[in-house]
Design a protein around this nucleic acid. Sequence first.
DNA 1: TTCCTATTGAAAATCTTTTTCAATTATAAA
DNA 2: TTTATAATTGAAAAAGATTTTCAATAGGAA
Lengths: 142, 142
Amino acid sequence: MNSKSWLTALSEHGYRLTEARRAVVAIIHSSQRALTPLEVYDSARLAYPELGLVSVYRTLEKLEELNLIQRVHQPAGCQAFISSAEGHKHLLLCKRCGQVTFFEGDDLEPLIKSISRRTNYAISEHWLQLFGLCENCQKSGS
Amino acid sequence: MNSKSWLTALSEHGYRLTEARRAVVAIIHSSQRALTPLEVYDSARLAYPELGLVSVYRTLEKLEELNLIQRVHQPAGCQAFISSAEGHKHLLLCKRCGQVTFFEGDDLEPLIKSISRRTNYAISEHWLQLFGLCENCQKSGS
DNA sequence: TTCCTATTGAAAATCTTTTTCAATTATAAA
DNA sequence: TTTATAATTGAAAAAGATTTTCAATAGGAA
Ligand SMILES: [Mn+2]
Ligand SMILES: [Mn+2]
Ligand SMILES: [Zn+2]
Ligand SMILES: [Zn+2]
């Protein structure tokens, strides 16, 4: 999914395509790691210096609402966002460089059924996230 | 693990046992759901009105450091804390009342090995969390 | 082009968390 | 018990993060 399709999605939902939004979309769409609002602001201002931090918050809010980005929870903090993957995927995060990789293929059904039986909960959602070192970061001294 | 053993643990690590700490420990130790610093403050002040919010933050910090409590991440926010379970356990959360239940018995090893092979990551940690409705909340109209 | 209103950025307001600091108090030593 | 000392406290200030307000601007339908 390219950056143009995000703009189309915004437009189709009645949101206007402004310079501020284009700048924010360009940055977060192309990032391999999760970015905080302030990081998005700093990067996007290189191309569009008039940008306000408020517009970054407002654009991230809309992108999240349209499921184009998602918040990433980490021990260090939970304010960063990354492009969403399509379909049911989970996150694998490099503890050193922050690179985000999506994976699929978890089969938690047996576990969920068993926990559900044991606890009498009606389970409807799950969060699974793996942490480690990416190939590059294993090479360079950790 | 009772609330007295938390005080012992604090003491054994060189921390003094003060009224403020006792009040915070009493509240968070006995809670079935994750509490924010402000919620701890409000509850604990009922028994000890001189308590300051700063001391709540400072005590939570120490309890987390000693692994007696842990931060709970939820869609609505990530500032709340709950007593830690012993051993390797994961969280099951009621989306309605917030009740926290720990479970074990996840076997993610095959998945982790497979993802590790596919991505060349050295995977060292995982977060797994289930969400649903507890028995009570299923009965009462959701 | 014109018109309407969604959107903007600056500034202020609000919330949350941390730091500073003088007074107090837990604890170990006498 | 009393004393000495350093950890701890709560108030206040500071720092940070996010949201709200508002007058000016600019996107896009007509
Ligand atoms: Mn899954
Ligand atoms: Mn989180
Ligand atoms: Zn890495
Ligand atoms: Zn419930």
